[in-house]
């Protein structure tokens, strides 16, 4: 396509940096802050958008893997529901971003219920604690990498690049 999305994002950033920002008077501090944040958001989106579907699919697969890891240790009262949810999740078309987002919410909702155990009435097996923690560790690394461009992460220097994470 002409013009490509990348080119348009680059143009927008230039317009904001070189024309819009200098045209704001010094007292318009909120507007200046927001222009700078738009620039930051756009630079981040420029790095992300090509990978977004793959990233979301990866998050979804990690969540399915967590559900499967929970399966053997889960309380009997959840076993059937969890099995069904895993099967439903696996049937989702991986390239459809909207469908994946929807499926994450559905499966994640059940995982949350199992973790809370109907507000403490059902015990949580140590194996599940560990499964959620190691899932959380890997997933938070992916998300931190994905959003490293915010510069808010104190440990961002230790993070790989988006391309490295996406490559596996």
């Amino acid at each position: 396509m002409l013009p490509s999305i990348d080119l348009r994002i680059a143009n927008i950033v230039k317009a904001l940096e070189q024309v819009v920002l200098p045209a704001l008077t010094a007292r318009e501090r909120l507007a200046k802050d927001q222009v700078n944040l738009c620039i930051g958001h756009l630079q981040m989106i420029a790095q992300q958008w090509r990978w977004a579907a793959a990233f979301e699919a990866g998050s979804f697969h990690a969540m399915i893997a967590l559900a499967e890891e929970m399966q053997p240790s889960v309380d009997a009262s959840y076993a059937e529901e969890l099995g069904q949810a895993i099967a439903t999740a696996k049937a989702v078309e991986g390239h459809d971003l909207a469908a994946v987002e929807h499926a994450i919410v559905a499966l994640g909702g059940l995982i949350d219920r199992i973790i809370l155990g109907e507000d403490g009435q059902v015990a949580l097996a140590p194996a599940i604690w560990e499964a959620v923690l190691s899932y959380g560790e890997k997933q938070s690394l992916r998300e931190r990498t994905w959003f490293a461009a915010t510069g808010l992460d104190p440990d961002r220097k230790e993070l790989p690049s988006i391309a490295e994470v996406m490559a596996g």
Binding site: L2, P3, L7, A10, N11, I12, K14, A15, V19
Partner: peptide, 20 residues
């Protein structure tokens, strides 16, 4: 498209708008 790619204009953002 070329001028916008090189960022050689004072309003590249119009160039890509027209280009579309």
């Amino acid at each position: 498209m070329r001028a916008a790619t090189e960022s050689n204009n004072h309003q590249d953002i119009i160039l890509t708008w027209l280009g579309s």
